[in-house]
Design a protein around this nucleic acid. Structure first.
Length: 814
RNA sequence: GGGCGAGUGGUGGAACGGGAUACACGAUGGACUUAAAAUCCAUUGGCCGCAAGGCCGUAAGGGUUCGAAUCCCUUCUCGCCCACCA
């Protein structure tokens, strides 16, 4: 028979809600702790990944509450986005109806898990009370010139005449009508995140409590590279081609130049074979995005018919167009050095272009161009490089750059991989961009006082024919704020990453109505002390949030540089070694588990089966084990009814139990602090086993047993709060365990007087002896050498060394 | 191709450079039961041995060390992220 989890869980969830136990306010004397888990997209149901994320956070929140912190632990919904719109199109409903239904359902599930959220702070980004402030922040960006419009390529379905997100393009075709998509240039809004690129990179150093790999991913995404922009003159023409390189040391080995197919200069310089080149460019443009995903594609290219002059040695080299050169990166043109760049090498071999070695590997026999089977990309000594011959290439790299600057043929430059952030979406279900187009005044921002620009209720959800907002006349037609004449609204909406870049600030003062957040409340709560979420957000969401914070700081609204002090990225939930997904049909529905075993069991299993950062392999049997354990501790409160054998506990047993209890407090506290929940739970299990091994029913008469049980309930309560609350009450300790202080331990009690030394002979364990704690090396040596088991090994042999590791072991080297 | 991480019993996983496999799952045996379930107890890395005990074992190989799952090098496998990045 299982303990009555249904009753208990409902009872305590109701109690927490009625007592508003998780409601927080700034408190002048209490230390604050802001714990945040990434808020969910309301897709319908919570999946195991959500449950895991929020359970991990809940343990920590409750732990910090019991430690006396003033814990802010909010929850909300990232409610704008395409799935709602797609569902609306499919089911002929309204995205708002669909979204709010999903929110209700998910909220119900979150409450059934007993998570300790302050629901009075809930926000949904699709609420005009929220997106009003998206618009407000957009206008601040606009004022500072950090938002601008420019043409950009979008995925376009000619049949539906609409833009598509990358996820909606399946193998180059429209996900709805299977028509081949094309790239189309549209005017799009961009946020100038590149204005903050230096700070975004530098401040990564402040994030010492972020996982190393997230920092690396951010760093790579920003992609700062230092190099030289070199100016190649054209032969018989005026134009100059700038190329960017990080390998200025290889400049003497450049044997051709490659331009990106989209490079504006290409059309200017085509020679006799105009048609072939234009054909090539057309083909390259089409395939670019589709082919990008496939591996090891042939590097294709074509000669333009023109030549350039290498400024360092006046060599005349051909100009090619190659599809492996990208317009977006660098200058869209490269100097190709086949000898020292593998891509250039393959291209040169394919098209019979010359290869010239300029760096020799000093460790290896002398290389000749004819013998190269792949590019040599390592370090070495300069050759064929004029006055730089004989220098190590790393040194030459600097000298050549300086020399080129002096001669005016190059300039040292930084290049960043980071692009400005495209925030326009030709979609309905998002925040309307607060801009008005006036014939006489041009692009005019909506006035602060006119916010929010409300998303109109009625719009056609056909998924066809461009932005839905452009077809809502009442929305589209407005008056210019400047001249009051007829004008048109912007019909693009914002990307949802905009919404989630500052939601954690709104949680600090969710009802504040003068600015997006109260400066005072934010000052108290921010930054987030611990942020928890999936690794899939390691780059974009976190980078955008960091950018927003820096920008808002510069507007004077905030006084700190980074939003998230500590970051934990939890692992994925797997079933049979694969990610749970509908398409694989291996999804476990949390609901069925909760119904069968209760949410405490689900929580316990998830926390016990793997460390939070690691992947979690789902196991039905493991669930059973977790359930069994809870039944086992449940019986500790009902100990009088247990028919266990009575044993007179000896003083020694009781002292030992007390010691174990305090050791458990110490280790569980440390483990929770370090997010080692699985080992924390195992230590509680050990203490439970210890009590069972005493087989005592005399708990109420026995201070030590009573203390041990009390401790178990306290230590376990962040993990499985419902059963612990019930046990706490049952044991007569008062109403809510949450109002109890986290237990502390007595250092003196933990200390052992006797210690077991491991005795090794030549590194192998041969014996163990128990001795007083502060034994000296001499005393111990005497004892060890008279040990029967050790004598056997040491007899008639010379002891070379006697290694003594205090309080741990000795190793006798023979 | 680049970056990061991981490889430990039948399984999930423990182990500040110091007792490998804590805790749990599963399995086997036993107690209780007419029986089953539940529960409780015991055993559970491999090999040799009646036993005491011994030998071998942390993906493979090498190195550093009195001592390596842990540190270093090489190789292999898996996972994640990025990727014609000049």
């Amino acid at each position: 028979m299982s303990y009555p989890f249904k009753e208990i869980e409902k009872k305590w969830q109701r109690y927490w809600q009625e007592e508003r136990i998780f409601r927080v306010k700034p408190h002048p004397k209490k230390k604050k702790f802001y714990l945040l888990e990434m808020f969910p997209y309301p897709s319908g149901k919570l999946h195991m990944g959500h449950i895991r994320n929020y359970t991990i956070g809940d343990v920590y929140a409750r732990f910090k509450m019991m430690q006396g912190y003033n814990v802010l632990h909010p929850m909300g919904f990232d409610a704008f986005g395409q799935p709602a719109e797609n569902a609306a199109i499919k089911n002929r409903t309204h995205p708002a109806i669909w979204t709010y239904k999903c929110i209700d359902w998910m909220k119900k599930e979150l409450k059934e898990m007993g998570f300790s959220y302050d629901w009075e702070r809930e926000v949904s980004t699709c609420d005009s009370e929220y997106y009003k402030w998206n618009q407000w922040i957009f206008l601040r960006f606009f004022e500072k010139g950090l938002v601008y419009k420019k043409p950009a390529q979008v995925n376009w379905c000619p049949d539906c005449s609409t833009t598509l997100a990358d996820e909606e393009v399946i193998e180059g075709k429209c996900w709805r009508c299977s028509k081949e998509i094309i790239q189309k240039d549209l005017e799009q809004w961009f946020l100038k995140i590149t204005a903050y690129q230096d700070e975004l990179l530098e401040d990564l150093e402040k994030l010492s409590n972020w996982p190393e790999r997230v920092l690396t991913m951010q760093k790579n995404w920003l992609g700062k590279s230092e190099g030289v922009e070199i100016y190649f003159r054209l032969k018989n023409r005026e134009e100059i081609i700038p190329v960017f390189t990080t390998r200025a040391d290889t400049i003497f080995g450049a044997t051709y130049i490659s331009l990106a197919p989209e490079h504006p200069l290409v059309k200017e310089i085509i020679g006799d074979n105009q048609k072939d080149v234009l054909d090539f460019i057309e083909r390259a443009k089409k395939k670019s995005k589709i082919i990008r995903t496939s591996e090891d594609i042939e590097k294709e290219g074509i000669f333009t018919g023109s030549y350039a002059i290498n400024p360092v040695n006046e060599e005349i080299i051909p100009i090619w167009v190659a599809d492996y050169v990208l317009l977006e990166y660098g200058t869209g043109a490269i100097m190709a050095v086949p000898s020292h760049d593998q891509r250039d090498f393959l291209f040169a071999k394919e098209h019979n272009l010359p290869i010239k070695i300029v760096i020799q590997d000093p460790e290896k026999p002398y290389l000749r161009s004819e013998d190269l089977i792949e590019a040599y990309e390592g370090d070495g000594i300069q050759i064929n490089s004029g006055q730089f011959d004989g220098l190590p290439n790393q040194e030459a790299k600097i000298k050549i750059a300086e020399w080129m600057e002096e001669k005016g043929i190059g300039k040292r430059k930084e290049f960043w991989r980071l692009r400005d952030w495209l925030i326009s979406r030709q979609r309905y279900w998002g925040t309307p961009i607060p801009i008005i187009y006036c014939k006489s005044c041009g692009t005019v921002p909506v006035l602060d006082g006119d916010l929010p620009v409300i998303l109109p209720q009625k719009a056609p959800f056909t998924g066809k024919g461009g932005s839905p907002l452009s077809k809502v006349k009442e929305f589209l037609e407005t008056k210019c704020p400047k001249c009051n004449l007829k004008a048109l609204r912007e019909t693009d909406t914002m990307a949802t990453f905009f919404d989630s870049s500052w939601y954690f600030l709104r949680f600090c003062s969710p009802k504040f109505n003068k600015t997006p957040f109260s400066k005072k409340e934010t000052k108290y709560w921010m930054p987030v002390d611990q942020y928890i979420g999936g690794i899939e957000h390691a780059i974009l969401h976190l980078l955008y949030s960091r950018f927003f914070i820096k920008f808002l700081r510069d507007t004077g609204l905030l006084e700190f540089d980074e939003p998230f002090e500590k970051l934990l990225t939890q692992g994925m939930v797997l079933k049979d070694g694969q990610v749970m997904s509908k398409s694989k049909g291996n999804v476990i529905d949390p609901d069925t588990i909760i119904n069968k075993y209760g949410c405490d069991t689900l929580r316990l299993f998830i926390l016990f089966a793997a460390p939070p950062q690691d992947q979690l392999e789902w196991s039905d049997r493991g669930i059973g084990g977790a359930s069994r354990f809870l039944n086992r501790i449940w019986k500790l409160t009902k100990i009088k009814s247990l028919k266990l054998k009575i044993k007179n506990l000896e003083e020694k047993d009781l002292l030992n139990l007390k010691k174990k209890t305090h050791q458990a407090i110490k280790r569980v506290t440390e483990d929770i602090e370090n997010f080692k929940f699985n080992t924390a739970i195992s230590k509680i299990m050990e203490l439970v086993n210890q009590i069972y091994s005493l087989q005592s029913v005399a708990y109420s008469k026995n201070r030590e047993v009573r203390e041990a049980i009390k401790t178990i309930v306290l230590l376990l309560s962040p993990f499985t709060p419902h059963i612990c609350e019930e046990m706490w009450q049952e044991l007569g300790y008062g109403k809510s365990i949450l109002k109890t202080k986290w237990p502390s331990y007595d250092e003196a009690l933990i200390k052992e007087e006797m210690i077991t030394y491991v005795i090794q002979v030549n590194g192998k364990v041969r014996s163990k002896i128990e001795v007083p704690l502060d034994i000296t090396e001499e005393e111990l040596k005497e004892k060890v050498l008279s040990d029967e088991k050790i004598k056997k090994w040491t007899e008639e042999r010379e002891i070379k060394r006697f290694i003594f590791v205090p309080n741990r072991l000795v190793n006798i080297v023979l």
